[in-house]
Design a protein around this nucleic acid. Structure first.
Length: 574
RNA sequence: GGACCAGUGGUGUAGUGGUUAACAUGUCUCCCUGUCACGGAGAAGAUCGAGGGUUCGAUCCCCUUCUGGUCCGCCA
C-alpha cells in the first residue's frame, strides 16, 4: 500500500492519527534542523514536518516521496492552503523516485510560455490549475451522461473512419491499405450517422464524440475536438430547445453550482449582427451598435452603404491616441480604413470627422451624446464588414473598460439563421448550417421563389461570446430535401455519389427529428474561465496543428507509404 | 493564403551601435528549529533564434529565414 489517505483530504478531523502519504515535492523549506515539505498529489498539498531526529533521503523538487507520520495541528495555520490547519509530522520518509530539475515552475502561477509548457506537457499537467480544468471537463461529461441517461437517451458510438463529403470543413484523409487509392475521412461530426440512428428507430441518442477538421487553428479552435452530440425524434423545435436548456442548466448546477435562468433568451441572427456585430455576442455587457445612417446631417456618409457606431463614456480619458491607434488595427483587419472617432466634451464635438457633420446639435441630440462620450464610427465598407469590425471593437472596449460582469454567464440562443448564404465567387448558394437543415414552415414556398430569404430551424447556443453549441431540426420531407439540393446546385448524380445511402434511408419513414451538439471544449473553457482551448485539452496541438511534445505530424517510412500506394511529390519530402 | 507581435542564462523579463549584457526566479554549496513566495552568505549558468548585410565595431540598424503567439480568410 502506497498510501492511506490523499494529501488534500487531511484535516483537523483526523488530528492524532497515523497516516501514510505519497506525492511530489512541490516545495522544500529547509530550516536546518527542521525541514518542511509541501507534498502534492492530485487532491492537493499538505505540509510535512521532518524533525531533526528523522532520517531523510535526498529530497529535491518533484522527487516522489512517501511519508509516514502523525497528523498534527499547526502552531500557526496557513489560511491560504485547504489543509492549512494541519501538517503531517513525519516518522519515516522514503524516497520513491528522483526527478530531473523541471524546466518550468510547477504551480498555479507558472511563468513559462506556451511552447515550453506544451513541450513538457506532462509537467504542465501537474499544475493544479490545469488539473482542475480537466477534472471540470470530466464533471461536465458526467453531468451530461447523468441527465441524458435519466431522460432515456442511449449512448451510441459512430465511426471515426467515415466517407469524405465536400462542403464544410476540410477532411483529414486516411488512406485505405486494403483498397488501394481510396481514402477514409476522419469524422467531422457524427451528423449523418445520428440522423441514420433516428431512422434506425433509437429516438434519443447521444455521444461524447471526437471530431476532426483540417482547418486553421485559433485560441478557441483545435483540429481534434469533442462534441456532446445529441439527436431526438418526435420532438418539436420548442421541445428540442427546452431539453437542451435543461441539460445545460444541469451542467451549470452540477459543475459550478450556478443556477441558470430558464428559458434562455433568444436573439435572431439578424438582430445579433445588427446589435452586437456578431453571431456569438458576449451579452455580459451592454454596449450596442447604433445605426447612424439616415440622419439628415450625414453629409460625409452620403452615398455610403451604412454607417454604424458604438458610443462609450470615457470620463478618465482611457482612449488615448495610442489606444485608439491600436483599436484602429481592428478596423483594418476587417477591411475598413479606420474607425471615425468623435468626442463630445459637453460643449463641442471634436475628432477626425467632426467637420464632416453639418449640424452638430442635431447629431448630438439624435445619438443621445452626453459629456465625455466617445463615438466610434464604422463606414465605407459593406455593411456586414462594418458590423463585424464594430463587433470586434465592442469586445475590446468591453475588456478595456472592464464592462464584463465575470460573476454571471451570458447565455443565449441565436436562432433564425438564413438557410442559405451566397458565394459570389462561385455564384452559388451554400448551406449556412448543413444541407439537411429544415426551413421554417412559413418560408417553404420561398424555396421556389426567394431562397436567400428562407429562414431555417437552426440555432446556436452562445455563452460569454463563445459558440458553445449548435444544431437544427432536420428535413424529413423528400420534396423539400430534393429542392434544397437543387438550390445548392447538386446534380442527381452528385447527390447519389456523395450521400446516396443517406437519401435512400430518408425514404423509409424518417421520423421528424432534430438535435444539437455542444462543444465540450468550449463549454469547459467557459465554465473554467479560460480563453485558451489548450487549457482544457490534455494534449493539444499548437497553431500549426503540431504537437511540440511528441512532434507529430511526422514523416513516415517509405515502406509504410509503399503499403498504402502513396508516392510523395518532390518538395514534400525532407 | 494574408496581417501583426515576440524570440536575450533552465524559466520569465530588462537593456544598449563600444570595456565585464542587468534583474527576478530556478539550480548548486554552506549556515539556520516553526517555515508556508522561509531567511542569510556564496557559486555556476547566455556563442542575445539562425544566416547575410551596413559599420572600425552589431545582441541593438537593415534584409532573409526559422520558431512561437494573436487575428483575418477558412471553420456546412
Amino acid at each position: 500500500m502506497y498510501r492511506s489517505i490523499e494529501n488534500g483530504k487531511i484535516s483537523e478531523r483526523i488530528v492524532g492519527e497515523s497516516v501514510k502519504i505519497i506525492g511530489w515535492i512541490a516545495k522544500k523549506r529547509d530550516l536546518g534542523g527542521l525541514t518542511f515539505i509541501d507534498l502534492r498529489d492530485r487532491s492537493g498539498i499538505v505540509q510535512v514536518l521532518i524533525n531533526e531526529n528523522i532520517e531523510r533521503p535526498e529530497m529535491r523538487n518533484e522527487y516522489v516521496i512517501q511519508v509516514e507520520g502523525i497528523v498534527s495541528l499547526k502552531a500557526v495555520p496557513n489560511p491560504a492552503l485547504k489543509t492549512g490547519k494541519v501538517e503531517v509530522v513525519a516518522t519515516k520518509v522514503t524516497l520513491i523516485n528522483k526527478a530531473k530539475n523541471p524546466p518550468l515552475i510547477i504551480a498555479d502561477e507558472t511563468d513559462a510560455l506556451e511552447d515550453v509548457r506544451l513541450k513538457y506537457r506532462y509537467l504542465d499537467l501537474r499544475r493544479p490549475t490545469l488539473q482542475n480544468k480537466l477534472m471540470m471537463r470530466a464533471k461536465i461529461t458526467k453531468a451530461t451522461r447523468a441527465f441524458l441517461d435519466d431522460e432515456d437517451f442511449i449512448e451510441i458510438e459512430t465511426p471515426i473512419l467515415t466517407k469524405s463529403t465536400p462542403g464544410g470543413a476540410r477532411d483529414y484523409l486516411v488512406p485505405s491499405r486494403l483498397n488501394p487509392g481510396t481514402f477514409y475521412a476522419l469524422a467531422q461530426s457524427p451528423q449523418i450517422y445520428k440522423q441514420l440512428l433516428m431512422i434506425g428507430g433509437f429516438e434519443k441518442y447521444y455521444q461524447i464524440a471526437r471530431c476532426f477538421r483540417d482547418e486553421d487553428l485559433r485560441s478557441d479552435r483545435q483540429p481534434d475536438f469533442t462534441q456532446i452530440d445529441i439527436e431526438t425524434s418526435f420532438l418539436t423545435y420548442e421541445e428540442v430547445l427546452a431539453l437542451n436548456e435543461r441539460l445545460l442548466a444541469r451542467i451549470f448546477k452540477d459543475v459550478v453550482g450556478y443556477e441558470l435562468k430558464l428559458p434562455i433568451p433568444r436573439l435572431s441572427y439578424k438582430d445579433a449582427m445588427e446589435t452586437y456585430g456578431s453571431d456569438k455576442p458576449d451579452i455580459r455587457f451592454e454596449l450596442k451598435i447604433m445605426d447612424v445612417k439616415g440622419l439628415s446631417y450625414d453629409s460625409f456618409i452620403h452615398g455610403k452603404e451604412a454607417v454604424k457606431g458604438i458610443k462609450i463614456s470615457d470620463p478618465t480619458n482611457k482612449l488615448s491616441r495610442k489606444v485608439t491607434d491600436e483599436l484602429n488595427l481592428i478596423a483594418k483587419r476587417y477591411g475598413l480604413a479606420f474607425f471615425g472617432l468623435l468626442k463630445y466634451d459637453g460643449l463641442h464635438l471634436t475628432g477626425s470627422l467632426a467637420k464632416n457633420i453639418a449640424n452638430h446639435d442635431q447629431f448630438i441630440k439624435d445619438l443621445g451624446l452626453v459629456k465625455d462620450d466617445v463615438l466610434f464610427l464604422g463606414f465605407d465598407a459593406p455593411t456586414a464588414r462594418i458590423l463585424s469590425a464594430l463587433g470586434s471593437l465592442r469586445n475590446e472596449l468591453g475588456k478595456l473598460f472592464n464592462l464584463i460582469n465575470k460573476e454571471k454567464f451570458g447565455v443565449l440562443w441565436v436562432d433564425s439563421f438564413p438557410l442559405f448564404g451566397y458565394d459570389p465567387e462561385t455564384k452559388k448558394y451554400v448551406s449556412e448550417h448543413h444541407p439537411f437543415t429544415q426551413p421554417v414552415t412559413s418560408d417553404i414556398p420561398k424555396l421556389w421563389t426567394k431562397p436567400e430569404e428562407v429562414i431555417s430551424y437552426a440555432y446556436d447556443i452562445v455563452i460569454n461570446g463563445y459558440e458553445a453549441g449548435g444544431g437544427s431540426m432536420r428535413i424529413y420531407d423528400q420534396d423539400i430535401q430534393n429542392r434544397i439540393f437543387e438550390i445548392l446546385g447538386l446534380s442527381p448524380k452528385e447527390i447519389e455519389y456523395l450521400f446516396g445511402f443517406f437519401i435512400e434511408a430518408l425514404k423509409y419513414g424518417t421520423p421528424p427529428h432534430g438535435g444539437l451538439a455542444f462543444g465540450l471544449d468550449r463549454l469547459t473553457m467557459v465554465l473554467s474561465g479560460t480563453d485558451d482551448i489548450r487549457d482544457v485539452i490534455a494534449f493539444p496541438k499548437n497553431l500549426k496543428g503540431a504537437s511540440l511534445m511528441s512532434e507529430e505530424p511526422s514523416n513516415v517510412s517509405p515502406y509504410q507509404l509503399d503499403e498504402l500506394y502513396i508516392k510523395l511529390n518532390k518538395g514534400s519530402e525532407e
